[in-house]
């Protein structure tokens, strides 16, 4: 008891716990994914089935849908832990809070970000995405969705104590998502025109590194405010 557990142990215990809980409640994984698929299928119905039009808007549609799906699933990130009190235990534990928060966000990304990346190519087929763009689509989603999870978690941590979180959350975090959206969709566009897009990926990567370093501290501080 004196020694306590190491940081790494704490990190992986929390990660494993969150994954297990989510696997037992399968809705948490599938509902955002279904939402993502549904939003993407609505677009051809709304703007018409012409392949040229669809392939022009495909990167934007997929990314906007991914943004919304990520936001929708984020709402539950801290909610259950907040209501049953385990969040408070986490705050009181001797392990550094940013580390614990990082574990939770990572678990969330594995559960919602990764399935999204796997499904995206199928939806891209439905939207007649340019053949050259598939690599860029996967790469931007792989680098971009963790940024969404990290930035979004700040907003969730700020609103977790409130009863009417939903609409407020979108107002708080969607503006912060804009850079990711811009660089990701232009990267896919560039790839579609056979232009190099590694520069765009590098910028998204930089955003990922930046938010990996800074966001856990902001999330931790926000959780301390919310659970006060």
């Amino acid at each position: 008891m004196k020694k306590g557990i190491s940081f790494r142990q704490a990190f992986f215990t929390l990660l494993k716990r969150d994954l297990q809980i989510a696997i037992r409640h399968k809705g948490d994984i599938f509902n955002p994914l279904l939402f993502f698929i549904l939003v993407v299928t609505l677009f051809p119905l709304g703007i018409g089935p012409e392949p040229q039009v669809l392939s022009r808007v495909a990167p934007g549609v997929i990314w906007v849908a991914a943004l919304l799906a990520s936001m929708l699933s984020l709402e539950r990130l801290f909610k259950a832990d907040y209501t049953d009190g385990s969040l408070e235990q986490m705050l009181l534990s001797p392990q550094p809070l940013p580390l614990m928060v990082l574990a939770k966000v990572l678990a969330h990304w594995i559960l919602t970000g990764v399935p999204l990346i796997l499904v995206a190519p199928l939806l891209a087929v439905l939207l007649h995405l340019e053949d050259n763009s598939y690599g860029a689509l996967i790469a931007t989603l792989a680098l971009g969705t963790p940024v969404l999870s990290l930035l979004g978690a700040i907003g969730v941590a700020l609103t977790v104590g409130l009863h009417k979180g939903g609409v407020l959350l979108s107002l708080l975090i969607l503006p912060l998502y804009i850079p990711v959206l811009i660089f990701a969709t232009t990267a896919i566009d560039a790839a579609g025109m056979n232009l190099p897009y590694s520069g765009h990926l590098a910028i998204i990567g930089a955003m990922l590194v930046g938010s990996l370093v800074l966001a856990p501290f902001a999330i931790g501080a926000s959780l301390r405010v919310s659970t006060n």
Partner: peptide, 28 residues
């Protein structure tokens, strides 16, 4: 008191993001 702290965190996160948003929008 909590409201001020929460809004303060958000404002600071926004400040870090403003240059990135400005740059990305200009580039876009």
């Amino acid at each position: 008191v909590l409201a001020a702290r929460a809004a303060g965190i958000l404002a600071i996160v926004g400040v870090i993001n403003i240059p990135i948003i400005k740059y990305s929008v200009e580039w876009w």
